[in-house]
Amino acid sequence: MTWLLPLPHLMITLMSMMNFVRKLGETSLKSVHKLGHMGIFMGKSLCCALTPPLKIALLIKQIQFIGFQSISVIFLTGAFTGMVLGYQGYNTLSRFGSDAFLGPMVALSLIKEMGPVISALMVTGRAGSSVTAQIGIMRISEQIDALRLMGLDPYRYLIVPNILACIICVPLLTAIFDVVGIFGGYLVGVKLLGMVSGTYFGEMMDYVDMKDITEGLWKSLNFGVIISWVCCFKGFYTGVYTGFGAEGVSKATTEAVVLSSVLILVWDYFLTSTMF
């Protein structure tokens, strides 16, 4: 009967393997469940956003918070992005004797990629995180339940203003970013490196199409939806997914920022590769 001796070991290995498979299944089920939850959340918010009673005052407050207060950050990052593009572009292009194309290079890379992505990341860091924290704290201190008890729809009061404000603000901020960046590139290319300003702007006008601008706008609109969706969802379900208490809120905020930044970059790739 000695051949039966390794059987318990075998059983244990089998059990641990089954445990691993079970864990895998559990995680995937959980993530699918969470995805569905996010979808339902977005659907509910959209329903609330598209039906009449819209809280204009709250929307204006959120536009002020997400849009107006981000202008300084967008200005700064836009100017420096444009300036660094001017420098790098000039150095690279002058190697091939085509520094005349600095203008189109700066403008196209800003309008098509840098503008939408960087301004969306900036909005995520500046406004998205605080939206999550605010809604999260309202959740853990049971203010959302209180709203519901008073007969007010928390979606209408908290989520819809944020989503609409993001959809309005992010494209506008992107436009500001693009223009400031183009003038940053002008500053470096023309004033510092001695290009002719007519070349910079003239070539730019020849190469930039309306199609490029609508592409950038469409992207930023998408990013606006992503930011508000992820940040509101993470805040709204702080208690469910990350636990109650201060730690739960901090975790939710971190997750919101990380997830929306990653989603912005991934979605940017897919938008570029499939649509344009």
């Binding site: 603000c169 506008l172 730019m204 490029d212 601008i213």
Partner: peptide, 14 residues
């Protein structure tokens, strides 16, 4: 400010 920038982009460049 946003709409001016958007207009600048689309009318001047686009």
């Amino acid at each position: 400010a946003g709409i001016i920038c958007l207009g600048y982009l689309s009318i001047k460049l686009g």
